[in-house]
């Protein structure tokens, strides 16, 4: 176990001031009622999307456990109450799609929902069938966004998705990858295909996409969804061992989750980050990152230095 960080009186006071100021400045769901949520336009349409979404990898895969499904529905309730819209899933995530469908039914099908799912098959012929199965799990009339999961058989699936988009069976088309894989291929697709979204891993420590993918997304007018913002929890676990930096209040952050998320969504190419959680407290913290001031370039550099030194 790592040693506990030593908190001096000065840093404690700074931390308290930062936390107090951040609370007063409002990145909380209560304050969400008064303050506008931060949004980014989807480049291909101009439709505004809140900068914080909700992922479902691992967290929503709870099988038929009724109590756990109800907990997930509560997470979704607080997500929508906090102004969130985009929920992302995949057939690969086992029961996650069904659990999202359960939550949406329980919440009375929130109109704000922006449904994002994936097609995940090694061949294209069954793509439409899988998308239809996913739609039934979610119990939605159609998906807003359908992505090719981890570029699996993208040559087969993208024509299907474009045809479905033309027919009005979905609204946006995208591709995904994670943890820096197949970026060269991602770039090629971004250059050659009329996709609306690309989903990649990006956070204060994993910044590989800053070099080529994010600038290319801006040039080509492609929206960017960011997965694994907390490195599957490892980054936040590490950060929580340290006191909140005194500059947190300058960007309206009351906790580490908001600092990490605000770093991501402050990149001008990023449309939305999709942290996943099973905790209502955590989804409230996450949604707080969609309010208040965002870091400027100087602050972003400061954040990198600070987090890398943790």
């Amino acid at each position: 176990m790592p040693p506990s960080p030593r908190v001096g009186r000065r840093s404690l006071i700074r931390g308290l001031v930062a936390a107090g100021a951040a609370t007063l400045l409002g990145p909380t769901p209560a304050a969400a009622q008064q303050r506008p949520i931060l949004t980014r336009p989807i480049p291909s349409s101009g439709e505004a999307l809140p900068v914080v979404g909700l992922g479902s990898w691992i967290t929503f895969n709870v099988g038929n456990d009724k109590a756990a499904r109800d907990s997930c529905a509560e997470v979704m309730r607080h997500f929508f109450n906090g102004g969130g819209r985009l929920i992302d899933s995949s057939p690969m995530y086992a029961s996650s799609q069904e659990v999202i469908g359960y939550g949406l039914d329980k919440l009375g099908k929130p109109a704000a929902l922006f449904s994002a799912d994936k097609v995940w098959l090694p061949y294209g012929s069954r793509g439409r069938y899988q998308i239809e199965q996913s739609r039934r799990h979610w119990n939605v009339p159609r998906f807003d966004l359908m992505q090719v999961h981890n570029l699996l058989a993208w040559e087969d699936h993208l024509p299907t998705l474009f045809a479905m988009k033309s027919a009005g069976q979905l609204r946006y088309v995208g591709i995904t990858t994670s943890e820096g894989r197949r970026h060269h291929e991602i770039e090629q697709i971004m250059r050659s295909q009329p996709i609306d979204f690309v989903q990649v891993t990006y956070n204060v420590l994993d910044r590989q996409v800053e070099e080529r993918i994010l600038p290319l997304a801006r040039d080509r007018g492609i929206g960017v969804i960011v997965n694994r913002p907390f490195r599957e929890g490892a980054l936040i676990k590490k950060a929580l061992r340290h006191p909140l930096p005194n500059w947190a209040a300058d960007i309206d952050c009351a906790n580490w989750a908001q600092i990490i998320l605000k770093f991501i969504v402050s990149h001008p190419a990023v449309t939305c980050a999709i942290p996943a959680t099973t905790s209502v407290a955590h989804v409230r913290e996450n949604m707080g990152a969609a309010y208040g001031r965002l870091p400027d370039e100087a602050m972003r550099r400061r954040m990198i230095v600070h987090v890398e030194a943790l």
Binding site: I58, N61, V62, G63, D65, A68, M92, R181, R182, T278
Partner: peptide
């Protein structure tokens, strides 16, 4: 592709809590 970049955790679809609740 890039199979060497995958770790066991990339194939774990559920949390310990969900597994033991099962």
């Amino acid at each position: 592709s890039e199979w060497w970049t995958y770790s066991l955790s990339d194939f774990l679809l559920f949390s310990p809590r969900t597994y033991y609740r099962l």
